[in-house]
């Protein structure tokens, strides 16, 4: 399944980069995500509830950010597992600076589905994925707007940069390195 699209944000691409790298922000804006926990540098574990039509499933997964070229591009690799099937996702994200202080985000990738979600209704799933992606970016846009209004400063963004991954209780799952 192909995942492709773009979205413009009214921030500089440096600022957008910081938002996109922030797990707290990401957890907040992604529909269904109830937890996004840091398990290593640029590696996260997620728990999410996704509802597609009559099907509702809880996905647990791993997500990592690789090939970072700040602030121009990165690749997200994701592995989501659930009782109705699994998704292995790889998405290339490119951020370009447009006139008027706009950061244009373009994404292009592929989701390999397996299990029931692969063989039932896959033909409608790319539509669903597009809806979810739009929701994510609309929520991010809203989050950016709200942050501008409430803080109106670079400080909070700067402070986000300094968030350190929490100390890990468990050692990093070696399987995370095999994603994708």
């Amino acid at each position: 399944m192909v995942v492709k699209g773009n979205h413009d944000f009214k921030v500089s691409r440096e600022q957008l980069w910081i938002y996109l790298m922030d797990p707290i922000v990401l957890a907040k804006i992604t529909p269904g995500v109830s937890r996004l926990e840091i398990i290593g540098e640029d590696k996260f574990k997620s728990v999410s509830e996704i509802k597609i039509g009559p099907v509702k499933a809880s996905f647990t997964g791993k997500l990592k950010v690789v090939d970072k070229d700040q602030p121009a591009s990165f690749v997200i690799k994701m592995e989501q597992l659930s009782r109705i099937g699994n998704a292995h996702v790889s998405v290339q994200m490119n951020i370009e600076e447009k006139e008027g202080g706009i950061a244009a985000l373009a994404f292009d990738g592929k989701a390999d589905l397996s299990g029931v979600i692969a063989r039932t209704g896959q033909r409608v799933l790319s539509g669903v994925a597009n809806v979810i992606t739009r929701e994510v970016f609309s929520a991010l846009e809203k989050h950016i707007e709200e942050n501008k209004q409430t803080v109106e400063s670079e400080e909070s963004i700067q402070s986000m940069k300094t968030i350190k991954p929490p100390e890990l209780e468990d050692p990093i799952d070696p399987a995370i390195n095999s994603i994708g």
Binding site: D112, L113, S114, A118, R119, T120, G121, Q122, R123
Partner: peptide, 13 residues
Amino acid sequence: DETGQLINGSYMD
């Protein structure tokens, strides 16, 4: 599909 998933494995598909 190219990963070997049967993508129409139901009477909906």
